[in-house]
Design a protein around this nucleic acid. Structure first.
Lengths: 347, 347
DNA sequence: GCGCTTCGTCGAAGCGCTTCGATGAAGATA
DNA sequence: TATCTTCATCGAAGCGCTTCGACGAAGCGC
């Protein structure tokens, strides 16, 4: 591996001239620049990343803290990671993976202190998340994917759960649905303060109540088996429900199975709509699931952009971003069936 | 951020003493070591990774080249990445992601030359893969997940496709199946020389032929829709087939749908067995899919171990590893139905 | 023709660490 | 007691780069 002084010697200039020729941070005559660049090419020179980092105190590395790349199925996590890594590369940064859960905040601190990363991306943020406190304290730029409880002075991009729920209910109500149930993620994730679980639960309650509808909701562990049980439970709670909204991809398979077992046709008897789902997951069901798919790749890119803006110019304020899920048509949602006991309706 | 000389000053020793106290590479009296460690703790000192790397010419970073974290569904890719990152961390390394496809070998070379990574992990290796040539040429340690065509002098871990197919066919034949069809990944991936596609195709041919059975196989793009079409095609080619082996998770959903549409019961009429599938994917089908799931996490850990062994002691030869898939029982495989035209069988 | 600015380049310091050779103080040996 | 080791520690060099101050050579106005 040739070094900068090999290049300098070969081109007959000083080391600093080579550096300036490369960075352009001081004027260099066109002629010598040519000569230097030619030498570089000839020798196959590539600046050593570590030496450069040491001198500039910038590693051009961003870290991504992620507890799980994949939650079971669901390409969302992976999609997010890939999009971030790609965007980072486009902008000349590298992405390192720090596999830490919320409880491992101390490890995060240690790694941050080592100075390997110029900035940090945090996935799967909890409402109260120690890792964020550590990052704040260390004074290192970061961007959350997700949001802590209070987010006013913090940097985040997130799915716009509220708007997503709003659009979903709007869509269903527009098709005549009034009795709409919701299948959430697990009770544990709700209690742990996992953002999507908490925010969607709250949004569903609010949006339904605002319309004078009953917000029938259940938590459900991430498995088809529990999805079946919960679907049964929901039908017991309201035998006349006409639509089910589910944020739990694995459970959705159970929801389908249970409805079909009971002879309820989708969507003729019951419509099913997936929200915050990974792209393509809709095609796996029969009939194909209508979804609001989560903008994983877009969030990944935006998170990186946002973080790097902060790095380049920490004074520039960057607004927090909320991206709603995208409607992806399927065959699992249709007009509400007219219920006998819905009869006394106004026209 | 305190530096090593802050610590030295505070403890009243020289910089080198601090370094030795930390690394233990020269004897230091217990007393001064204590004093130094106390100062470190008090000052909150963490050695700067970049400076250390520059001095030692070791970055303690390994890079992972991956074209896709997720192929649609399938947590295998993500599982692999996560397991690798975790294992690397356990051993004091960081994992950076290099999102390069096989065509982007030049970019790989540039990054390698920068010296950011001590070693490289390459996912989704093709039979003929330029990236591997680049790594060989650069003389940087690497480990493939997957294999190039000739692997004798190269470092790899991979799924043991041959053993997996062998075990699968064995299992089915043991249940009386003779007419077994195979649904592979896409024709494009076969032609691109994507390892799993090619090796399993070959293994299926061989294993079936060795048993005097007809190796009925089809490529199929990764989608439920094409899965349906291919299933129809297979039934046209052999209306009496009793088992389908599929390596294509998305297509499997279509296979199920098509069989059910035709009133063929699973497994009473046709058994379906998924191979090289991501863990948990079996539970999504109804009836639950019997699979040979791919040992993604194990491969991830092993790949890292293997690479780091090479780094520590490049002379020590490390054998290439092949890990078979693991049988995961489900409800989609049963005894072969007795076909009218299979009648003249020996007892 | 003089001083003044501008331009292009150089040398050296420094980023924070590791590591090698040297050194002085004990302790062991004769 | 003089000599040789051994042990613990120090100082300095060096990893490959950036960047600051300096300096000579042109170019400028008057």
């Amino acid at each position: 591996m040739p070094t900068i002084s090999d290049v300098a010697r070969h081109a007959g200039v000083s080391v600093s001239t080579v550096s300036y020729a490369l960075s352009g941070s001081r004027p260099i005559s066109a002629e010598t620049r040519e000569r230097v660049l030619a030498s570089m090419k000839l020798l196959g020179y590539h600046p050593n990343a570590m030496a450069r980092s040491l001198a500039t105190r910038r590693s051009r590395v961003i870290a991504m803290i992620y507890p799980e790349v994949d939650r079971g199925l669901g390409g969302t996590g992976g999609e997010f990671v890939r999009a971030s890594a790609e965007r980072a590369r486009e902008l000349g940064y590298q992405l390192v993976l720090w596999p830490f859960r919320a409880e491992e905040a101390r490890q995060v601190r240690n790694l941050v202190r080592q100075g390997t990363a110029d900035g940090v991306l945090v996935m799967e943020v909890l409402l109260d998340d120690e890792r964020i406190d550590v990052l704040e304290e260390a004074g290192i730029p970061y961007t959350m994917i997700g949001r802590t409880r209070d987010v006013t002075s913090r940097h985040s991009v997130d799915i716009d759960f509220e708007a997503t729920v709003e659009a979903t209910i709007e869509h269903l109500v527009g098709l005549g649905h009034r009795r709409i149930a919701f299948v959430n993620h697990s009770r544990e994730s709700l209690e742990a303060g996992y953002g999507p679980t908490v925010r969607v639960a709250a949004a569903f309650d609010r949006v339904m109540s605002e319309r004078g509808l009953r917000p029938l909701a259940r938590t459900c562990s991430d498995s088809p088996l529990d999805g079946r049980a919960v679907m049964g439970d929901l039908l017991a709670a309201d035998p006349h429900l006409t639509a089910v909204v589910t944020m739990n991809e694995l459970a959705t398979f159970g929801v389908f199975a249970e409805l079909q077992r009971r002879g309820l046709a989708i969507p003729a008897d019951v419509s099913v709509m997936g929200i915050v789902s990974s792209p393509g997951v809709g095609t796996l069901s029969n009939p194909q699931l209508t979804t609001m798919h989560s903008p994983g790749a877009e969030l990944g890119r935006l998170a990186v952009d946002r973080l790097l803006t902060q790095l380049d110019d920490s004074s520039r304020p960057v607004p927090n971003l909320l991206i709603p899920c995208v409607f992806e048509p399927g065959l699992s949602v249709g007009p509400a069936r007219t219920e006998p006991d819905d009869a006394p309706q106004r026209p």
